[in-house]
């Protein structure tokens, strides 16, 4: 899925390769790239299921406008994964409905 050699852009500058967890599976991506991009390069296409009809949703706008791509990141629901940078060891989960309840610290 990654573009290795682009006719105009050549190669893409990326951060360090890091590991993260998606729904209990270990995956690899590049630090600092949007979580959605790291997931897509691992073949993940579904980010969440809607609250009432349980329909799948994935990336739609890729610039943080539409919220179709929200997931649970390190326990926090409703994170827009198309603009949230991937960090080493991030734990990412498919969001179902509004996601788990968060207790404020």
């Amino acid at each position: 899925m990654r573009i290795d050699d682009h006719p105009i852009l050549g190669t893409f500058e990326k951060g360090q390769k890091v590991s993260f967890v998606f729904d209990d599976k270990a995956m690899e991506g590049f630090e600092g790239e949007p979580i959605a991009v790291a997931l897509r390069s691992n073949g993940v296409k579904i980010h969440r299921y809607t609250m009432r009809r349980n329909q799948p949703r994935g990336i739609f706008c890729a610039i943080g406008r539409c919220t179709d791509c929200i997931m649970v990141v390190d326990g926090t629901p409703n994170v827009r994964t198309c603009v949230e940078p991937l960090q080493k060891g991030s734990v990412i989960q498919t969001q179902v409905g509004a996601g788990p309840e968060v207790t404020r610290k």
Binding site: R57, C61, I63
Partner: peptide, 30 residues
Amino acid sequence: ENMIPFPGWTLPGIIGAGAAQTIANIHGIK
């Protein structure tokens, strides 16, 4: 970006053209 509704339009894989441009040209993913 504007959107047009049609049966099945919310399925993952239906994206804005701007999204395709962002994903491919900035992040280097098809």
